[in-house]
Amino acid sequence: MTVIVNGQPAQVAPGQTVAGLLTGLGHPPGGPGIAVALNGEVVPRSAWPTTALDDNDRLEVLGASQGG
């Protein structure tokens, strides 16, 4: 199935969790400085392992950048 990660389509296996996808992106769940929004809603870090993705989900993976 296809999900949109930071504006780009990505193929993931059915049942893939937020934690699994982030680990694949190089952001293991224990690492600091990352936040995730799923279809605009915050996914708390504690819910990453249990939040399964659906087809066409829109995921924003965010981290610190220079600003302000």
């Binding site: 930071n6 504006g7 992106l25 190089g26 952001h27 600091p32 400085g33 990352i34 936040a35 924003e60 993976v61 965010l62 981290g63 610190a64 950048s65 220079q66 600003g67 302000g68």
Partner: peptide, 17 residues
């Protein structure tokens, strides 16, 4: 010090944190 929240970019070198 302020920081912004932006999309992560794969392979970014160094971290402001």
């Amino acid at each position: 010090t302020t920081v912004a929240l932006r999309r992560t970019s794969p392979g970014a070198r160094g971290s402001i944190l």
